[in-house]
Amino acid sequence: MIRRVKVMFQEVFAQRRLLWSLIQLDLRKRYGASFMGFFWSVINPLLQILIYTFVFGYILSVNVGGNAGAKNYGIFLFAGMLPWIAFSEAIQKSSTVILENKDLVKQVRFPVMLLPMHILLSSFLHEMIALAIFVVILFIVGQGPPLLAVGLVALFPLQLIFTLGVGLIASAFHVMYKDVGQLVNALLLLWFFATPIIFPLSLVPHWLQTPLLANPLAPLISAYRAALLGNEVPHLWAFIYFAGFSLVVFLIGVTLFHRLSRDFADLL
């Protein structure tokens, strides 16, 4: 299994230029396709954050700790949305990426793994842009991120392999079973509310906290908040849990994708 992962990385490394071209292509489709491409790609998540902030921060006045209020809630939400949007977008797009590029898979010889991978990296780049915007906002509201924010960089590899693992599983199964597309959407919706993104874990009834913490994304989101907002740093065990979970999902994803991708050209 380790050898397979090594082979995979070698393949991808050998084709890194193609990977980069695919990412550029995706970014251009995202930002360049319509008149105000970049604007739309930012405005939609921003609008989502503003609406949630209005509903939960202002109308429902959810207490996220610190000085309660819409401003705090907005920032609290934004920090959680950053990794979530990158994750969910990557999963959603990787689940359909093989089918969308079926001519390529059938007619051109290249490591098919590049397709979900370029989606992952393109979503990640997009998150980095959003992160930069967020840091600017933090300075504007006079709540510059603590020095710990630099530690976020250490978390990125884990976030990437976890997302890649889930993405590979989704994309491989979607080729075999078209229903997976719908299933992924349903699961992501469920996952969104099962992750402390729009609410802090402290507001969750005690009996629900442990099951929610089993969600591997929970430590990730908490870590983002700790790094960007100076919230409480999650326990070391949470990190170990997330790292272990990511590694397992990643290995399953790579193995499964590797196995099934041999038949992609015939099944499409």
């Binding site: 193609l18 071209s21 292509l25 489709k29 001519d103 390529l104 059938k106 051109v108």
Partner: peptide, 22 residues
Amino acid sequence: ATGFNPEFSGRENVHIKCALLG
């Protein structure tokens, strides 16, 4: 037509296709 993207120009598509061909 494989590897060509209808939205892009022929020039850009040549670059894309060449990248696909390694």
